[in-house]
Amino acid sequence: MTESTLELPPNSSVPLGLSTPGDYMQQARLALDLSIEAVAARLKISPANLLALESDQFEKLPGETFVRGYIRAYAKLLGIDCDAALANYEDYLRALRDTTVQVTRNKDAENTSIPLSRRRQIAVALTAIVIVVVLSVVFSLSDSGELSLGANTALIGDEQSRSVEPGVLPNESLSRDLGENTQLIDDTATSQKTAVEVISDAQEVKAQAAATIAPEKPIDDQLLLSFSSECWVEVADARGDVLFTDIKQAGESLSLEGKAPFNVMLGDVRSVNIALNGEPVIITPKNKGKALRFEVGGESPN
């Protein structure tokens, strides 16, 4: 928002609907060909506070009462309607509040309401549970396997000692018993194999979870703005670089690359469609045709 971009011929009427309160004041001041220092000398408000007022950084000023007081005093000095300037300020604040709520709500809907850190915690907890279950199964099975093997060996010993019994084919009974025992051993081996499979499955789940929690993030985000009527635009990215400042005409579109979240200011928010990385961002302020400053793609404030 530089002074050179907003020069107006003297005595021109400032369009109220297309500017933020700060812009409105700045345009009126430039129309009267007054410098910040001259205004500061008249109102005794420090130039820093005046600049904060003109750039809509109201949080840098001493408080709501003073912001309103400064706007009133400034408007009186510039010969513009105090009530209109204050109404513009109130509209701006209301629109800013509404949009912050709206953008946050949209963002939540996009993220299916579970944040990344939460998803990571869930994945870790699930993996831990799977490992514990698998280990307990393995231990219990291996314990029972040892026991049955021991019992079978004892059984074999008994059978061998009993082999002197008349009328019984010792080899036959031994082979039958051995066959049963082999089957038991086979069962144990199968269950152990299953346990190994479960472990490998768990590892697979873990790998999948890891893949879910660490998606590849593009370094630069893309913001696309398309205009249906004439609109003032200013876009800055998270690094503080001002990417674009100008008026766009109806039918034009604007593609910008930078780091999200983008700080966007629009003269007429209703005439613009916004998309971030190909996904549309819906902004619906309640008052119509008013200027608006908001963030796109930032973390929610809550």
Binding site: L43, K44, I45, T65, F66, R68, G69, Y70, R72, A73
Partner: peptide
């Protein structure tokens, strides 16, 4: 407010 601004050299505002 203008009179007090000029006399004191401080910003003077009228409350809502």
């Amino acid at each position: 407010d203008r009179l007090l601004t000029q006399e004191t050299g401080l910003p003077v505002i009228v409350a809502d």
